[in-house]
Nucleic acid binder design. Structure first.
Length: 270
DNA sequence: ATGTCCACCTGCTGGC
DNA sequence: TGCCAGCAGGTGGACA
């Protein structure tokens, strides 16, 4: 379930296991995730101490005292398993700490990735270079979004999924934020009043914060091998609710666009 | 440049 | 019960 809140929750879940710990064992069980990591990754990580963890957009960051940052992306189906009893065929990357805690990056579809980057070069790291602002930062403002949408004819929903405009939103939270802001997903990006853009910016921040909060309370579900959805899935107002009643009474609709499903309320989203 | 579609990969669900 | 189509949280490349 990896959009920004899930990655944030994952990173917070890794902190107690990894922060300040030495990596005594690093095992790559298969290298062909979305792309292959550097061949010296294992050597550079083994014996290194984790100094801190972080997140950029949907990427998790694990910093070491050797000046390297392990960058991971969970793709569609990735998650970290904490202290798995045994390893399965989708546990592609496994580390063990000096406290004998074990972490396995599990990703059946292998759309995720890991990479090892010099920490000082993260800003010029290619996948990061084009990313837009963090949605929860002050840089992500009404002015920024108005500028980014200006003159664009693509559906607003598609533009919000563009990580160059705002980094970290995915299909679920875009649907939820648009519903919260009362804006139709198909509306052209450049044809939304500033006032409504302001409402949208607030809705995006609100829905992400709420999801992080809910995720934080279900961290254990997250790390578990069965990979259940966090509690926030129970708070979805439109996502996954085709045919159900919106709070306004109308029926929620689903529309497929470019291979993705959009859920919306035709009555309160205009 | 912008907009749109598709491939990448595996697993699960629902309909027949 | 078994099979198969359809669908799934992301990303980036191809194309018009």
């Amino acid at each position: 379930m990896p959009e920004l809140p899930e990655v944030e929750t994952t990173v917070r879940g890794l902190v107690p296991v990894l922060q300040g710990r030495e990596l005594v064992s690093v095992e790559a069980r298969r290298a062909d995730l979305r792309f292959s990591f550097p061949p010296d990754l294992r050597q550079r990580l083994t014996g290194a101490k984790v100094t801190s963890l972080g997140r950029r957009a949907k990427y998790g960051l694990i910093n070491t005292d050797r000046g390297d940052t392990l960058v991971f992306h969970l793709g569609m189906s990735g998650r970290w398993r904490i202290d798995p009893e045994e390893l399965g065929r989708h546990d592609h990357f496994v580390v063990e700490t000096d406290e004998r805690r074990r972490l396995a990056l599990n990703d059946p579809r292998r759309f995720g990735s890991i990479d090892l980057i010099r920490t000082g070069r993260l800003q010029v790291y290619e996948p990061f270079a084009k990313l837009g602002p963090e949605p929860l930062s002050d840089t992500f403002s009404t002015d920024h979004l108005v500028r980014s949408l200006s003159g664009r004819s693509a559906p607003l929903k598609a533009l919000l999924l563009d990580q160059r405009i705002v980094a970290g939103l995915g299909n679920i939270y875009v649907c939820e934020a648009l519903h919260m802001a009362g804006i139709a997903p198909a509306r052209a990006g450049g044809r939304i009043s500033k006032q409504r853009v302001a409402r949208l910016v607030a809705a995006i921040k609100e829905v992400l914060l709420a999801a992080i909060e809910a995720g934080g309370s279900t961290l254990r579900d997250y790390a578990r091998p069965d990979g259940e959805l966090g509690y926030f899935s129970k708070q979805w107002r439109v996502y996954g609710r085709e045919g159900e009643q919106c709070a306004c009474g109308a029926l929620i609709r689903r529309r497929a666009e470019g291979g993705r499903s959009t859920f919306f309320c035709p009555s309160c989203q205009r």
